[in-house]
């Protein structure tokens, strides 16, 4: 544009500046509110951790990890079977929930996208994400416990998988959506079939995020209690085989969360002590994994 076509002032009305002092006050106020809210969250978190560590640390010793819960009013013992049980229940839930969640996410982000089916799946996923976890337990009870006439670890894992599935799907879809379209186009422009472009290039470029999503989804259900209430129940015995009364498919399986619930409400002080120890183990495992995963994969970026 040449000089002679430069426009003049837009209007004859003078522009009145806003008060700088007022803006500064509002800025301070909003900043402090945000800061306070964050500090409150951290404070509560810290309080929980300090309490659990303070009360639970006394229960932690070698026997805690290796021995079964004491029978009757005996002292001593540990939560060994519960730790093993929780690991197995969560692990098997992951075997079911993670692959389905992963492929669901691949479908949503790579194939369905904004289509009607994908939109429906996404909505359902969001709804399931908000379903109270006890409903997941009821669901597994209805399809696996009631028809078979016995509680089982398998039913517990299915209930946990039901909670894990939408968490994994949403997290993985978010990660896949971060892959730039240019990479998708580049892979397809090489003459790659859709599935090869998806698995070989797109999923691969999102792998750090996908691993993070997986671990966080697994850890998310490790601390669940309600889904196990009428599925895996709990037991004081070591998991033994598959189909026997102490087997994964055959009967109740010991686990930390339900045991914590039972022992914390018992009148015996040494059982309450074990419950605090169990709480400490779970909180350390969940928090530790979270922090570790974020540290490792954020550095990779």
């Amino acid at each position: 544009m040449s000089a002679d076509t430069m426009p003049g002032p837009l209007s004859a009305v003078p522009l009145r500046p806003r008060s700088v002092a007022r803006r500064r006050v509002v800025d301070r106020l909003v900043t402090s509110l945000a800061w306070l809210a964050a500090a409150f969250g951290v404070f509560i978190m810290g309080w929980i951790v300090v309490t659990v560590v303070g009360r639970g640390i006394g229960a932690i010793n070698w026997a805690f990890f290796t021995q079964s819960p004491p029978a009757g009013a005996d002292l001593g013992g540990g939560l060994g079977p519960c730790i093993v049980g929780t690991i197995v229940l969560t692990g098997f839930a992951a075997v079911i929930g993670i692959p389905i969640g992963f492929f669901g996410a691949v479908y949503l982000s790579e194939f369905g996208r904004t289509g009607r089916i994908a939109t429906a799946i996404r909505t359902i996923t969001n709804v399931v994400l908000g379903v109270p976890s006890i409903i997941a337990g009821l669901f597994a009870y209805a399809i696996l416990v009631k028809p078979l006439h016995h509680y089982s670890g398998f039913a517990g894992s299915v209930a946990l998988a039901f909670i894990m599935l939408p968490v994994m799907t949403r997290a993985a879809e978010d990660v896949l959506n971060l892959v730039p379209n240019e990479l998708r186009e580049s892979a397809l422009a090489m003459g790659a079939p859709r599935w090869r472009a998806t698995l070989g290039v797109i999923v691969r470029s999102a792998r750090a995020g996908l691993i993070t999503s997986t671990i966080l989804a697994v850890v998310r259900v490790a601390g669940e209690t309600a889904p196990l209430l009428f599925t895996a129940l709990s037991s004081p015995y070591w998991l033994n085989g598959l189909f026997g009364p102490s087997g994964f498919f055959g009967g109740p399986v010991a686990n930390l969360t339900k045991t914590i619930y039972d022992y914390s409400t018992s009148p015996y002080q040494h059982l309450q002590q074990l419950a605090w120890g169990g709480a400490l183990v779970i909180i350390v495992a969940v928090l530790g994994t979270n922090v570790l995963v974020r540290l490792v994969f954020q550095r990779g970026k």
Partner: peptide, 9 residues
């Protein structure tokens, strides 16, 4: 393409 897009390999 406009943006260089090496594959993650």
């Amino acid at each position: 393409f406009q943006k260089p897009s090496p594959f993650p390999m």
